[in-house]
Design a protein around this nucleic acid. Sequence first.
DNA 1: GGCCACTTACTCGGATAGCGAGTGTCCGAGTTGCACAGG
DNA 2: CCTGTGCAACTCGGACACTCGCTATCCGAGTAAGTGGCC
Lengths: 167, 167
Amino acid sequence: MKLSEGVEWGLHCVHMLAGLPQGATLPTRALAEFHGLSETYLSKHLQALTNAGIIESLPGPRGGYRLARSPEKITLLAVVEAIDGREPLFRCTEIRQRGPVASGPEAFRMPCGIHVAMARAEKAWREALRVQTVADTISHYQHDVSSEARERTAQWVAGRMRLAPEK
Amino acid sequence: MKLSEGVEWGLHCVHMLAGLPQGATLPTRALAEFHGLSETYLSKHLQALTNAGIIESLPGPRGGYRLARSPEKITLLAVVEAIDGREPLFRCTEIRQRGPVASGPEAFRMPCGIHVAMARAEKAWREALRVQTVADTISHYQHDVSSEARERTAQWVAGRMRLAPEK
DNA sequence: GGCCACTTACTCGGATAGCGAGTGTCCGAGTTGCACAGG
DNA sequence: CCTGTGCAACTCGGACACTCGCTATCCGAGTAAGTGGCC
């Protein structure tokens, strides 16, 4: 089992958009080119983020994507769920009720212990992703690279981003 | 993203084997029939559990599967990893190094913040599964069903299980 | 020179193929218990 | 009646098809800027 590749793409793109000036946008082409990704396929994931209300799109020339709300309000969980879906990792199909010895649903009022334990672990995972916002990560995201590389990135982005027409 | 269906199957089978008398075995047919599963496909997952050293098999007539170690020594994580694999959920492919602005690996000594955050969440998930042993779950597993159903299950199992030839 | 309409280029958005992991199945190797014949 | 041998049935184990979701791509709808002509 593994998470969708698009989760990593979406997370990096959201963090990149978070580093832009207020209201500025960046088109799919720039986001894809910067990360060395397929432009068309990345577009699909950006659509998912748009539908989830995490980013918003401006059509037409000088258009592109920008965050729909401040980085402090965007959790990693929201991004993961937007791209990968909100389905639980472990789905209890109640196979204990399917055998020839099954006694009907009334005998299984309590959820099975396995289901409870798996759900608890999954909750721990989701909670860890929920407390971490994009704003929290962005500082590390910036300090992890050398100042020289950061400067070069800023230059490259400045040449591709579009300032906000209105906000 | 979802866990393999076989994870649920494996967990229930392990818990069922844990309820058997010391050294007794249960064949694939019984485990599959009890849960209403495909016998041949379940066999595949039981093989994975055997290769992982969680359960052990006795061939021939009167053969079957039994736990390879006591339920206290079997964590849910071990079962999950045996069936679903030990690959991490989130695999950081370092896409920030792939773009035209990338400055070579020496500029990225620190792991990216996204990777760290995702790994932390994943560790929380694994840790929650590691602290939960089959012995812990088995008590809930038994109390969740009515005593009448539990008795009927015991009867059904008694007619299918094979006592240990030696241990 | 200023204003308006058209063209044009660029953007996102959804609908359409391809591939790989999980799913499902089958048949063969190995082993143990049983039955039968011989002593 | 006891014992040794052969048979047979049942078990696990690995090798072989199939399906669905992620991956990847394309083309169309919509928009805003730029350009040219007209007043």
